[in-house]
Design a protein around this nucleic acid. Structure first.
Lengths: 215, 215
DNA sequence: CCGACCATACCGACCGGTTGGTATGGCGCA
DNA sequence: TGCGCCATACCAACCGGTCGGTATGGTCGG
């Protein structure tokens, strides 16, 4: 989720640099395959600094997921799609923003939480829960807009909670499938999935055909 | 994808037992966190046997993805949903089968290829390509039915290739998000996502409301 | 204004255990 | 006799984590 840097300030202290290194290295190589030494080298700090700030590698994983939650939460909270008057436009605006964020190598737009939970859901409850907070938290940020849109358009047969989670499902799945592709083809494959998600919402909210093509 | 055992014969030779061990352990712990020693212990063979059959751990990963492709390919090829006369019913039947396969702990219904590609897409091109073959191959198996259904219902604005891949996107995403949940809640979360996928296809293929509720 | 005292941040050598991988030898079947 | 199949023994590299130590800066009583 979210491009690699722009919206995240470059950290100056060792702890921040380690969290930033974790986000970058874990997205590319996964959690287990990223060693503490690699993290330290990439952050430009020593192992002493690492274990001064984090009790264990697992604790770093939890902190990285929390850091990720904060960064993405703040980014989406400030995004301009919230200003649309129509809640349907806000929901579609969120999807369009996610679409716009996809580009470059997969590790620059994929999700740390999704990557980590795949590896650690069984071995570390703490990491699993931190990743849940990140992903489900992201879903919840969209839930009110979806609920409002459902009422306005009279959508029944599902809930805003379920739909908001489905958005995250498609995003996470898009990242997984994009990773099966070589670098140049990956972004298109991810975007393709989000366009199907958009169309699903257009069906649900009965968006007229000409309006649905404007992205 | 696909439950843990039933449709896979219990292997008798060392190679088969190692592949089976790989499927089970990688789904639970990921590829990097699964050691060769663990694999051997779980398969009941020694390290000598491992490196007799596989040149490296990476080669085992590739072989496991190929093994997975064969097993799932054969399973879905023989599934009864193919017998529906209406191509729309075949497509929805596939989704319903996938729904029915979800249950128990996540590592019993999730996908080895999706799990491995998340970790190895950057470090091992061979594994990435084997996982691509598995996931995209699974998509391709549904492509003809989707194409036929699109023609029959006059669906435009997308392609059968894109739609068949989207099915895999939702399935993979459902596994990721399910892994954020504790064991008892995971299957429901995964099923919820597939129900949205089903509804998307019902919209696309203009399935009447009463028929869409029969699952 | 001072120096004793202490907390925080960080350093890098080091440890025991585990890793993926190898070398070699035996054993049953053609 | 040879070859596929596998077991045992072993290795160097690397792993997460520890530990003794230093540099810095704030906060006291006097």
């Amino acid at each position: 989720m979210v491009p690699n840097r722009p919206f995240r300030p470059t950290p100056t202290n060792a702890k921040g640099k380690l969290l930033e290194a974790a986000v970058q290295l874990v997205r590319g190589n996964g959690f287990a395959a990223t060693s503490v030494d690699q993290l330290c080298a990439h952050a430009g700090v020593t192992k002493g600094a690492f274990f001064h700030h984090f009790a264990s590698k697992e604790a770093l994983g939890v902190a990285a997921a929390d850091y990720w939650s904060e960064c993405t939460g703040a980014f989406f909270a400030e995004a301009p799609f919230h200003h649309h008057a129509d809640p349907v436009d806000r929901v579609l605006g969120y999807i369009d923003l996610r679409l716009a964020l996809i580009g470059g190598p997969v590790e620059s737009f994929s999700c740390v939480a999704g990557t980590m939970v795949q590896e650690a859901f069984r071995s570390s409850a703490a990491i699993r829960i931190a990743c849940e907070a990140s992903i489900i938290g992201n879903a919840r940020a969209l839930e009110a807009d979806i609920a409002e849109a459902m009422v306005q358009r009279g959508v029944t047969g599902t809930t805003a909670e379920s739909l908001s989670r489905h958005v995250q499902v498609v995003i996470q799945g898009a990242f997984v499938v994009a990773k099966t592709q070589e670098e140049s083809a990956a972004p298109d494959m991810a975007r393709d999935a989000l366009r199907h998600l958009r169309r699903y919402f257009e069906f649900l909210f009965r968006v007229p055909q000409e309006r649905s093509a404007d992205q």
